[in-house]
């Protein structure tokens, strides 16, 4: 337990010590909120779909969590290159706990970051249909953050340097974002796209945020949480296995 805590604490210390990182990670979601929220808002409305910001904001939350979490997970590569990883690998503690602590830390950072995005969205005019739903929404955000931080850690455990990172970003993370229904409603897309969205974990995350904040979900909240929880557990198992096998 103390191992999980100390590794979590380390992620916190690193995060709050670098304000530039906090600001930089807010730039992208903010840009999307502005460009798409205001840019597409009118067209969306004219198409008879209603308030685009109400639809878009949960998607942007998903985006923010996806990117911050994957980056946090892949920070492992950084630790490997700069050596700190060795310190934790040689320590007389369970590597599973080391990984759980790192992952929980990364997920906390991503959730915190997304909470700032949520506040910004509210300033831009986004209104949750029920303010009390912010609490379960935060829990859902943490669950999604755990999922993607674990995914990032799992990949990072199998990579030894940054060369594979760009590939993962382009072929996995970007498609996961764009095809998840974060930007467009899934009930009016061609079957192929709908199929892809169904195997994209982010779809369920964004859908859960929409269900909790907007009051209407595509898959249903029960399905969303079940899928997210199962995938997170599977990834934790795969990630711990890969992490336990890392050689220095």
């Amino acid at each position: 337990m103390s191992t999980i805590y100390i590794m979590w604490l380390r992620q916190m210390l690193r995060y709050f010590r670098s304000p530039p990182r906090i600001v930089a990670a807010l730039a992208q979601p903010l840009l999307y909120l502005l460009a798409f929220g205001y840019g597409f808002g009118r067209i969306y409305q004219m198409a008879g779909q209603g308030d685009y910001l109400a639809f878009l904001a949960p998607g942007i939350l998903g985006m923010s969590i996806l990117f911050t979490s994957i980056f946090s997970g892949m920070e492992l590569i950084w630790d490997r290159q700069f050596g700190f990883l060795k310190e934790t690998l040689a320590a007389p503690v369970s590597r599973v706990n080391v990984m759980l602590g790192r992952t929980a830390g990364g997920a906390t950072v991503a959730t915190f970051q997304a909470a700032i995005v949520l506040v910004l969205a509210i300033l831009f005019g986004f209104r949750p249909h029920d303010w009390w739903m912010l609490i379960p929404a935060l829990l859902a955000m943490f669950l999604v953050a755990m999922l993607f931080t674990t995914l990032g850690t799992w990949f990072a455990a199998m990579l030894s340097d940054f060369q594979g990172f760009q590939m993962i970003m382009n072929f996995l993370v970007m498609p996961m974002f764009f095809l998840s229904g974060a930007m467009f409603p899934l009930n009016s897309v061609p079957p192929v796209l709908s199929m892809i969205a169904r195997v994209d974990p982010l779809s369920y995350g964004v859908d859960a945020f929409r269900g909790l904040l907007g009051g209407a979900s595509h898959f249903g909240l029960g399905v969303d949480f079940a899928v997210l929880a199962v995938i997170t557990l599977v990834l934790l198992a795969l990630g711990s296995r890969a992490f336990s096998r890392i050689e220095a």
Partner: peptide
Amino acid sequence: GIVFQDPSLDDQL
């Protein structure tokens, strides 16, 4: 216990 040859500190801390 071990003291490594290459750096193994967290330099942000």
